[in-house]
Amino acid sequence: SISLRVYCDAKMQEVLLVKAGVPWKDVDVSVDFIPDGEEELQLTIQNVLRRETTVHLLSLEGFDERPNKMTRFTLRLRFADASHCIVTLKDDGFGEFCPSSNRIWERYLSL
């Protein structure tokens, strides 16, 4: 299973993105979020077969510097194969106030 650590409803929590047992070919998940001073994302990968938990920290550096809470990102997860996840992060801007930089980056994570 893969989850994203976020601040929601006045507390830090894990948002489940991919549930364990879902075929890797069927995974194509997107989620939008607005960072609140964060400089990195925390993805937690739990391998239920090996009973291992891996935490990946993904930096938000390189995107346009904007005032706090004035950027919206889209995070997309899909798989290249059974043991490699593709994480795509896209800067969506913030409406008329902050146009998108159209910057996109991808990371390949080994599971």
Rank of each mutant, 00 (worst) to 15 (best):
K19Q: 13
R5M: 11
A82V: 08
V55Y: 04
D9L: 10
R78V: 03
P35G: 06
I86V: 15
F63C: 06
R76Q: 15
N102G: 10
R107K: 15
G37S: 09
L77D: 03
D81V: 07
S1Y: 03
T44L: 07
N68K: 14
L41N: 01
H84K: 15
M70R: 12
P99R: 09
P23F: 05
E61H: 12
V31T: 13
V18F: 03
G21P: 01
K90Y: 04
F97S: 13
S83H: 13
L109Q: 04
N47V: 05
V29P: 02
S101Q: 08
W105L: 13
N68F: 02
E96R: 12
Q13V: 13
L89N: 04
V27Y: 01
L41M: 12
D9N: 14
D64V: 12
I34M: 13
L43E: 02
E61A: 14
T74W: 04
G62F: 02
S83A: 12
Q13S: 15
Y108I: 11
T54R: 15
R50S: 14
D36F: 09
I34S: 14
C8D: 13
R76I: 07
D91N: 09
E38C: 11
K19I: 04
P35L: 01
V15I: 15
V18C: 08
E14W: 07
G21C: 05
C8W: 11
R72D: 01
E14Q: 14
V29W: 00
D92Q: 15
K69S: 11
D91Q: 03
E38Q: 15
T53P: 03
D32A: 08
L89R: 04
I2E: 00
R50I: 02
Y7K: 10
P67C: 08
N68W: 05
P23K: 08
G95Q: 06
I86S: 04
V87Q: 00
D9H: 11
G95C: 07
L111W: 09
F79E: 02
F73R: 08
W24K: 05
V31N: 00
E106G: 08
K90N: 10
S1Q: 12
L109G: 06
L111P: 00
Q46P: 00
D26P: 04
V15N: 05
I2M: 06
P99W: 04
I34D: 00
F94S: 07
L77S: 05
S1M: 11
W24Q: 03
I104T: 15
E96K: 13
V31D: 01
R72L: 09
V22F: 00
S30F: 07
K11I: 09
P67Y: 06
A82P: 00
C8T: 10
R103D: 06
P35Y: 04
S101N: 07
L109C: 07
A20H: 11
V27S: 04
S110Y: 12
N68D: 10
S101Y: 03
T71Q: 14
R50E: 09
V55F: 03
S83M: 09
R78E: 06
Q42V: 14
F79I: 01
G95L: 06
G93R: 02
V87F: 00
F97E: 15
K25M: 09
